[in-house]
Structures are given as C-alpha cells and as structure tokens.
C-alpha cells in the first residue's frame, strides 16, 4: 500500500531521537571498521570518502530537483566554488589543522551559497528545460572563470592542498547533511517547497512566497555542494577546473534520478552503488562503460517498474526501501 504514507508521531521525539542517535553511532562504528579493519583492501577503502562526498552532493541536489522540482545541471559549479575556496583557505592560513579545515568548510559552503542566490535570479524566471540549460551554462561559466583566474592556478589548478579529509570528517558531514535536509523537508519550509513543486498557483493562493522558497532551496543545496567540494579538494590534494565540468553535474543528477526524486534514502543508496560499481566492473576492462550503462538501465527499470513490488510480495525478495516514493512531474 504505497498510497498510505506512514503515520508520523510527532511528540515521541525522545525515544525516536535516541534510536536515531544509536543508529548514527553504530553507523560510525561500521564505517570505522571498514576504513581501518582488514575486511576491505586499499582500493575499496579509498572509496569510502568519495561515497560520502557523492551522498552529500546527491542529497543536496535532491532538494532542488526532487523536492522543489526544478531540473538543475549546475551542481558541480557550486562544488567547484566550495572546493577552490576551501583549498585557498587552507593553503594560505597557518592554523591548527582542525581549525583551518572547519573554517574552510564553512566559508566554502557560504561562498557557494552566495552563488546560489545569483543563480536564483534565473530560477525565478525560467522553468523546466530552459532552467536546465541556464544552470548548465552557469556550471561552464564558473569553470571558465576558474580556468582564467590567476589565484586558482588556471588550467593547471591547485596542488599540495593538505589532505585533511578523512572518513571521520566525511561521516560527520554526511550525517549533518542528511539530518538537516530531512528535517527541512519535514518542516513548514519544506512543505512550502514541495507545495510549490506540486502546484505553484495554488501555493501562491495559500500565501506562500514562491520566489523566496525557490531561492531558499537553491541556496541550501549550493551550500552543501560547496561543503562537498571542500572535502573533495582536501581528499585529492589537487584541483583542476576540468574536474567540475558538466559531466560531473550529470553524474550527480543520475544518482538523484536513480535513487528517486524526493527520496533522501534513495539518494544515499544510489550514491554508494554508483561509486562502487565502476570499481567492481574494473575487471571487465574494455566493457566497463558498456556494462556500467547496462547496469544503470537495469537498475532504473527494476526500481521504477512493478517487478520489484511483485518479487517482494511473493516473498522472493526481502522488502527493500522504496526508492521512488515521490517521483517528480
């Protein structure tokens, strides 16, 4: 029964929050074991940080694409702004590691958010395909500017960025992102955003300020993309403008679409699967990209058609989380 949404108890927060806290701690122990134990080899261990970064990117993009319902192809642009801002901060500051890194994360997020306001202007005027093209152009403009500026190292990029990113930072920020976005979508602000997606004429008629909430969604998403960028730069230690072309934006969008528009949990799972998949397929070598594409299509079909529901109902498959709960228009 997909039509009856689970009842939410609103005042049992002590018990529920206790469970969530326990889950977060348990999750951390699992990640710690994977990162430090003997279960995984080096190659797979090195995927833990990228998975976390993609989770932050996908969950934040889901806010604009899934919950606000506006197609955005510029998420890598915000990521680039965060990445370069953060790198320039840690390269130039001379403070203790943790202090420096926290400043980089916050400022990186904020500068990206400011650009989120800028992109908000076309967002208010354009819809659908037109907006997608403008955000794509925004992405390319950011990349070109970074390519052109001296302070960002031009096409050569930046190097020797301190490797501050580790699984602990990533875990903390992934949890913060998921908690904040989930809380947001279940609040009065999030309801306003979803209402605008479903019917903006009706949303206006009940007194919602459509422009305010559209820009809000873009700014918050940009903030988290910026943070993901800071983590990215301090993981690789080198940054090049080419890392942030539109292919990156599309990659993030693919994760969101696969995980399901408006499903935070789906974005998390899809980010993990799509980051691991290329590594698993490495053995197939020449056929890697072909297999990747085939698996992608198969997963999309499996997730959106009734096949899974049938298998689950007949007991051949355990109940998996519903990825496509709120599909966009």
């Amino acid at each position: 029964m997909q039509n009856i949404v689970k009842e939410k108890k609103n005042n049992s927060f002590t018990k529920k929050n206790l469970l969530i806290t326990a889950g977060i701690i348990l999750g951390f122990l699992v990640v710690m074991y994977l990162a430090e134990g003997n279960l995984l080899n080096r190659q797979y261990k090195s995927l833990i940080v990228p998975i976390g970064i993609y989770i932050i990117l996908a969950v934040s993009l889901n806010l604009t694409t899934g919950f606000l319902g506006e197609l955005s192809l510029g998420h890598a642009g915000f990521m680039a702004i965060g990445a370069y801002t953060g790198a320039l901060i840690t390269l130039n500051l001379n403070m203790p590691e943790a202090v420096e890194f926290i400043i980089a994360l916050i400022v990186g997020g904020f500068i990206a958010a400011i650009f989120g306001v800028l992109i908000g202007v076309p967002v208010l005027r354009l819809k659908g395909d037109y907006l997608a093209i403008v955000t794509l152009a925004f992405n390319e403009i950011i990349r070109s500017i970074i390519n052109f500026l001296g302070i960002t190292g031009g096409a050569m990029g930046l190097s020797k960025i301190p490797r501050y990113t580790n699984y602990i930072w990533v875990y903390i920020l992934v949890v913060l992102t998921i908690v904040i976005i989930t809380n947001l979508v279940n609040s009065r602000h999030g309801r306003a955003i979803s209402a605008i997606r479903d019917n903006y004429v009706a949303a206006e008629s009940i007194g919602l300020k459509v422009s305010k909430y559209k820009v809000m969604a873009f700014v918050i998403a940009a903030f988290f993309a910026g943070i993901a960028g800071v983590l990215y730069g301090h993981n690789l230690s080198v940054l090049k403008p080419a890392d942030f072309d539109y292919n990156k934006s599309i990659e993030i969008l693919v994760i969101v679409v696969l995980g399901g528009m408006g499903s935070v949990r789906g974005s998390v799972i899809a980010a993990a699967v799509l980051t691991i998949l290329p590594e698993v397929l490495r053995a197939a070598d020449d056929f890697r990209m072909l297999l990747y594409a085939v698996v992608l299509i198969a997963m999309m079909l499996f997730n959106s058609s009734g096949i899974r529901t049938k298998l689950e109902e007949s007991g051949k498959l355990p109940k998996l989380p519903k990825l496509t709960r709120n599909r966009a228009k």
Binding site: S194, R197, N199
Partner: peptide, 26 residues
C-alpha cells in the same frame, strides 16, 4: 491540490502563515 503531499500536509501547508517557526528551528 498538492498531489504528492498527504491530505494532512495539504492543510498544514496552508497554515504556513498561522503557525511560524524559523529556518534554524526547521
């Protein structure tokens, strides 16, 4: 209507300006 929202949330969306709290609270 806000089709992909619940019946309850449709009405709660309309209470937006009656019961307020900040973005920080959200």
């Amino acid at each position: 209507l806000f089709k992909k929202m619940t019946v309850l949330d449709n009405v709660k969306a309309a209470l937006h300006n009656q019961v307020k709290y900040s973005l920080f609270t959200s």
